[in-house]
Amino acid sequence: MPDLSDTAPDFTLPAGQGHEITLSALRPAPVVLFFYPRDDTPGCTKESIGFSELMPTFEQAGVQVFGVSKDSISSHEKFATKRNLTVPLLSDEHGQVCEDYGVWKEKNMYGKTYMGIERTTFLIDGNGRIARVWRKVKVPGHMEEVLEAARAL
């Protein structure tokens, strides 16, 4: 699990429409990676819409933003179309990036234990180092907080 000032684990993931995103190729732009559990669930929808609404502001600040989950590209594309999302969604179907970032965790809901993605956001600076980490994210106000931290880099 990477920590502050560690180099962010590099990856190449599918981004839909035949595109792939390689984290290290985005330098020197700062990058926000928000890991979320599932497409089209209430919290994930609010978070993805929130980041989409702020995309122009992130772009003005020179910051790239990506959502990451284990959902397939086709699931991401349906979710993005249904919710008018502009934030790019990356598919980590095999879960390696979730493992590398330490967000694949044992979770508990209604007394049942299962493995899933812990809602976590990473802010990566232009040198590829982790500048901020938000774990167990509560969605309200989160996107604005990430934007302020990104602007402060």
Rank of each mutant, 00 (worst) to 15 (best):
G16D: 10
D125N: 15
D92S: 00
K78L: 05
Y114S: 04
G126E: 01
F58A: 00
E144V: 08
E93T: 14
L147C: 09
S24L: 02
D39L: 04
I73W: 00
S72Y: 13
T113Q: 12
G16E: 11
T120I: 01
E99G: 10
I49F: 13
G126H: 00
F122P: 05
L4Q: 03
T22V: 05
E118S: 06
R83Y: 12
L4A: 00
I124F: 01
L123W: 11
G111S: 13
D39F: 10
L23N: 02
S74P: 10
G141A: 06
V139M: 02
S52L: 09
S48E: 00
A131T: 05
T12D: 06
A131M: 09
M1R: 15
R38F: 11
I117V: 12
E53H: 14
A8S: 07
G128H: 00
F51V: 01
M55V: 11
F66A: 10
E59W: 11
K107F: 15
P56H: 06
D125V: 08
A15R: 13
L4F: 00
W134F: 05
S75K: 02
Y110A: 06
A80W: 00
V63C: 03
T121H: 04
F58P: 06
L54F: 10
L147W: 12
A61E: 12
P56F: 04
F79V: 07
N108P: 01
L54A: 15
V97M: 07
K112P: 13
I124C: 02
P56K: 07
K107E: 05
E148Y: 08
L4P: 13
D100E: 08
M115D: 13
Y101W: 09
L123F: 15
Y101S: 11
S48G: 04
A61W: 10
M115H: 10
I49M: 08
T41F: 08
H142E: 06
D3M: 09
S48Y: 02
D71E: 03
T113S: 11
E20S: 10
F34S: 08
K78A: 13
R27P: 00
G62Q: 08
Y36C: 06
V139D: 01
D92A: 01
D40L: 04
N84Y: 03
P56Q: 02
V103W: 00
G116K: 06
K46A: 09
K82H: 14
S48H: 03
G16R: 09
A8L: 04
G116M: 10
I130W: 01
K136T: 11
E53P: 07
F79R: 05
P2I: 13
E20L: 08
E118M: 05
L90I: 08
R132V: 11
C44I: 01
L153Y: 05
C98Y: 01
T45M: 03
P42T: 06
L153N: 05
T120G: 03
S5Y: 02
V68R: 06
T45C: 12
R83Q: 15
G62F: 13
G18A: 12
L4I: 09
R151P: 12
M115S: 12
P88E: 06
D125Y: 02
I21M: 15
Y110F: 15
K112V: 07
T113I: 15
N127P: 15
K70N: 13
D92H: 00
N108R: 14
V87K: 05
I49Q: 07
H76L: 10
Q64K: 12
E145P: 03
K78N: 09
G67V: 02
I73L: 04
T12S: 13
Q60N: 14
E53I: 13
T113H: 14
P2G: 12
